[in-house]
């Protein structure tokens, strides 16, 4: 089984996000960058499949040179090799990212692509599904369980108010949702081994893409801080009953939400 995994490096979720002076990007100094949490699920699932069926796990990431760290984390977890696509100075949107990945993947042979269902920085929910379209393969999103048999995959997926099962023939792209697995940590020997595993870097030009092919269709005009929530009212009262009655009254008369 040849498995490709899509990994993005993102600010750790505990980061405080501040807007940079240009008004369209965030301040990155002091921020810890990690593998996107959903992509950890993707790497774990790929490793499990390889352990059961054999094959190789290749990690692909689009990002600056620093994003190689996220690939190394995946290699330390147990993946076999990595490909970093560094767009250099180009500003790339979600669709552009999918185009770069598609160009890198087209010459490869693969049975399965595993991604996260969203990257917690841009929250685009786009790259994985768009990539499947560009590769003309089916995609299955929000996967919490999968089963491979007879050249097909069958996935359990979360939807509003329940779950559904979707089946598709390989090659296919699946996108991981929380619940799929518990990602392993990179072990110390794993980290040592990862340093020697192959990691190639490619530029858009290496992939036959020019700036014009990657022109972003979505441009950030301005970033704004969301309205700050002011601490509200602490409900006082002599008893729990009195506090509860007071709160119920305020929710009806003042907040008008019940």
């Amino acid at each position: 089984m040849e498995i490709l995994v899509l990994v993005k490096q993102v600010p750790a979720t505990e980061s405080m996000i501040a807007i940079a002076g240009d008004g369209v990007s965030i301040k990155t100094d002091g921020i810890k960058f990690v593998m996107n949490p959903y992509d950890e699920l993707a790497v774990e699932e790929a490793l499990k499949i390889r352990e059961a069926q054999g094959g190789t796990v290749t990690i692909l990431s689009v990002g600056p040179a620093k994003a190689a760290e996220a690939i190394r984390t995946g290699l330390a977890m147990g993946a076999d090799k990595g490909i970093l696509i560094d767009p250099g100075d180009l500003t790339i949107d979600g669709l552009g990212t999918a185009k770069l990945l598609a160009a890198a993947i087209k010459p490869l042979s693969y049975d399965l692509i595993v991604a996260g269902h969203r990257a917690v920085d841009d929250d685009n929910f786009q790259v994985a599904t768009a990539l499947a379209e560009l590769l003309a393969i089916p995609n299955i999103s929000m996967v919490i369980k999968q089963e491979l048999a007879d050249g097909k995959i069958r996935c359990l997926c979360t939807v509003e108010g329940g779950t559904k099962e979707v089946e598709a023939p390989l090659p296919v792209l699946i996108a991981a949702q929380r619940g799929l697995n518990d990602p392993r940590y990179a072990s110390l020997p794993g980290i040592m081994k990862a340093k020697k595993k192959p990691l190639e870097t490619k530029t858009p030009a290496d992939l036959g893409l020019a700036a014009a092919d990657l022109q972003p269709l979505v441009k950030v005009k301005a970033l704004k801080a969301p309205a700050e929530r002011k601490g509200g009212r602490l409900i006082e009262g002599d008893s729990v009953q009195a506090k509860a009655a007071q709160l119920a009254r305020l929710l009806r008369e003042e907040a008008k939400v019940i």
Binding site: F125, Q126, A132, E133, S141, V218
Partner: peptide, 23 residues
Amino acid sequence: ATTQGKDLGARLSARLNAALATD
């Protein structure tokens, strides 16, 4: 921007080479 809407928007954006803003 439901489970299905996000997925559909993404695939359509690639099919139509169109700008997409999610959520």
